[in-house]
Structure formats: C-alpha cells, structure tokens
Amino acid sequence: MIVRRKRTRSQRGEPRRGPGRGRGWAAPLLGWLEEHPRAALASLGRLWRNPGSTLMTALVIAIALALPGALWILLTNTQAASEGWDSGAAISVYLEADLNEQAVAEVEQALAGIDGATLVRTISDDEALAEFREMAGFDAALAELTDNPLPYVVVVEPTATGAGATELGDLADRLAGVTGVDRAQVDLEWVQRLHALLALIERGILLLAALLGAGVLLIVGNTIRLDVLNRRSEIEVIKLIGGTDAFIQRPFLYGGFWYGLAGGIGACGLLILLTALLATPTAELAEAYGSGFRLQGLGAREAAFLLLGGGLLGLIGARLAVGRHLRAIEPA
C-alpha cells in the first residue's frame, strides 16, 4: 500500500496538459469560429440526405411565404397602374338652378377669382339636356318635362398640375363656398376611394403575412422538435462528454435557418413562375385599354426580403422549439 502511494505522488508531479491549457486565448476563439461553419454544413448535409422530407417542409414554407408575396405584387402593380389617375383632375361645380345668364356670368367671375382655380368650360342647362337626350332611353322621359331641371355646370381645373387628392378637396370646398354654387364635386372621388381601398388591402396583406409568418414559425418549430426527439440519444451522449447547450443547439438552429432559406428560395421561384404566367394576359388586357402597362414581377428588394425573412423565421422557429426540448433531455 505504502509503495503504491509513493508511486502515485511521483506521478502527480508529472507535467500533464488538460484541455484548453497551454493553448492561449486565441485557440478557443478560432475553434469556435471553425465550429460554426462545421455545424452549418453538418446540418445542411443532414437535410440533403433526407431530400423527400426536406423538400416537403421547404415547399410548405415556400407556399406560406409566396401567398403574401403574390398579394404584395398584385398590390404594387395596382398602385403602379392607378398612378397618375388623379392628376389632371377636374372639379364639376354645379350652380344653383334658376340662375339667369347674368347671374351665371357673375358666379363664373367669382369662381375664376378663386386662388388656384382655372375655368375650363361652362356647360349650360340646354347643352346638358341635349347631352342627356343623346343617351338612349332618356328621350321619352325627358319629353315629359315641361322645363329643364338641369343646372349650369362649370368645369374647373386646379391651376397647379399634379395636385393631390387633399388639394383637390380643399379647392372643391372653396369653390362650393361661392354664392350661387350648389355644390362642387371632385370627379375623381372614386380614385380616392380606390386609394383608400388599396391602403386597406395593404394593411390586410401585412396582417396576413404576420399570420402566415407565425405559421412558418410553427412549421419549422415542429420539424425541429421531431428532429430533436429523433436525435435524443446523440444529444445525451454529447451532454455527457461536456457539450454545452449552445453547442447542442447550434446544428438545430442552422437546420431551422436552412429550412426557412429553402422556403424563401421556393417562394421566390413560385412568384417568378406566377408573374411569368400572368405577364402575357396582363399585357393583352393593358393593350385593350390602350395602356402600355406591364406586370411588374418580383423585385430584388422583395426577393431579398423573402430570403432573409424566411431564414430568420426558420431560425426563430428552431430556437423556440429547441430551447424547450433540449432542457428536457438529460442523460440518465
């Protein structure tokens, strides 16, 4: 017994290097930098070896991302098509009925004096009635009338070109304030309504995108959760040999990122396909309306957003799933 103890003590003095000792501070950092691409490639390889399930998951994510993407492209195209519709706008100023020509001339003068307003033309009550008569079916109805119920209409344009909807509205209010004017109507109210509708749709698309983004989180989260459970024994072994939670998480997080990125790429592909299929019919429709409008496809910014957003959603989804399940797996 004593002999053995002596040997032990002599051994204790032997130089021995433990892990990390004598490696300086840079080696662990470099090792860590090496570890990231290693984990990224390893998880990519794992997905590559299961092409069926990987493709399925990526496709589900792609569709979830492509849906708001398609609506977004539709929206931006509608906005582009309707651009300029509210320039060159005119305001119809309806005068009070029963004004004689003298009074009409006075009102016209007053309207011309309004700042920013340019009179284009005046439609007399007789002209308006004649216009109505030309329309089919009104003839008989109008013959019943003993006197002309139509008022004078003065068409006014804003002096400044490219006036927006609010400027037009203000001008219409001022025109309506002139004595002898019944009401002033902006002819482009429907454009305003369209723009309000588009703003509403934009908000709707954002909400839908948020909803589908949450869906992507759940899809990736669930996929990664199954992955964690499948590799339970491996996780236990790595924990036993001193792997930190961060180390164990890393390949799963990269896995989630790859799923999301693949989904983003898939979504870009779907959208490019979609716009390619719709380009010709759209061009034909635009031509029928005498417009040179062409369908705007997926822009570089949108594509980058889809790829980045997909990757980020995948990463977050994986993080949510892994954090919860890794803690539960302990070697026994």
Binding site: P19, A27, P28, E34, E236, V237, I241, G242, T244, F247
Partner: peptide, 26 residues
C-alpha cells in the same frame, strides 16, 4: 459504449475536442 452510430470512428473520438472547441489541425 454510447457511440454515435451515424458517424465514423474518427468523428466519434473527435467529439470531446469538437465540443471543447479545438481547431481541426490539433
């Protein structure tokens, strides 16, 4: 044994070093 059967002998033995952040040369 608790070996990982989806990777080679080398990779199994390397695991404690990978976990501790060793560089590939060492």
């Amino acid at each position: 044994h608790q070996l990982l059967y989806d990777r080679s002998v080398f990779d199994n033995v390397a695991l404690p070093l990978v976990v501790a952040g060793y560089r590939s040369t060492e």
